[in-house]
Design a protein around this nucleic acid. Structure first.
Lengths: 147, 147
DNA sequence: GCTTGATCCTCTAGTGACTAGAGGATGCAG
DNA sequence: CTGCATCCTCTAGTCACTAGAGGATCAAGC
């Protein structure tokens, strides 16, 4: 079983060293063995686990959801109902983000196409921003847009 | 000129009281006059300014961009080039977020459609998450997806 | 006048998922 | 042996708020 330093693990997974330590801190990665010089020592199991985490993050899963998914993959005898549910929820969240962003895009296109060459005093961009009633459709706060 | 309490301003703009104080703290809103009992007192100019801020936030503009836009609208004799630029940048950012999210959606749809009824040991959701090579296309980290 | 509940004040700390930096120890190559 | 890379811990910063403590004041109803 080949042995990896934190730097080697970082390079192999394209996850930053500080992020690996962070994942350990919040309990996504187990505390690794330490070499005599106190440095972290990893094996390939941690590499797969980190790859799993990275992939799930890329798909937009929250850390809490990933924690659940990891527990499931650690206990393969369990039902995978929960994993299916999490994936479906994530898909729904992505769908709704896309819908919101598309509404915003429409609004912004109207703003941009109204761009003027003159002074701010007759600038459509500022004017449209000043007056919500110019908007064709309602657009909600982007609070739910964060990934 | 009618006079507004912070609560009335909050109600009129649908922005939370704490958020209004926060905007004052970071300099998006000017420090208001105070009544004898130390309470904030607003006029309609602040109401428009806050409506402007809210609308721009809904469109996904960052606070720094809004600061610039507010400066522009405070000085109508300036060229509106910068406002046009900011709007175009914001549109490009939204476009790229949508593109990323659509790639994620495709991936997630594949994950969800592979949902199984059995045990985790043969669960496609977990398996697909474990192995990036299952992915049809590259999908980047969602770090740039935050609104 | 008294109580009750809403509103207001300041200040601090928490959110999520990292990222950056201080300040120092160790390892390795030339 | 001299750099420079890598590693360690710990703290604080990012963004745009949000929540709560702990208290003062106000308006309405009895």
């Amino acid at each position: 079983m080949p042995i990896l330093s934190i730097g080697a693990l970082a390079k192999a997974t394209d996850v930053k060293v500080t992020t690996i330590r962070f994942y350990e801190q919040i309990g996504l990665l187990p505390e690794p063995l330490r070499a005599s010089n106190d440095r972290r020592v990893y094996d390939e199991r941690t590499l797969s686990r980190l790859a799993f985490i990275k992939h799930a993050r890329q798909l937009g899963f929250a850390v809490d959801a990933i924690r659940t998914l990891l527990q499931l993959s650690d206990h393969p005898e369990q039902s995978c109902e929960q994993a299916n549910l999490l994936a479906a929820e994530q898909l729904a969240a992505v769908d709704s983000k896309i819908a919101r962003l598309e509404a915003l895009r429409g609004e912004l296109q109207r703003v941009v196409s109204a761009a003027c060459q003159g002074r701010v005093s007759d600038c459509r961009v500022i004017e449209v921003l000043s007056d919500h009633s110019h908007c064709a459709a309602e657009h909600d706060a982007p609070s739910a847009l964060a990934s």
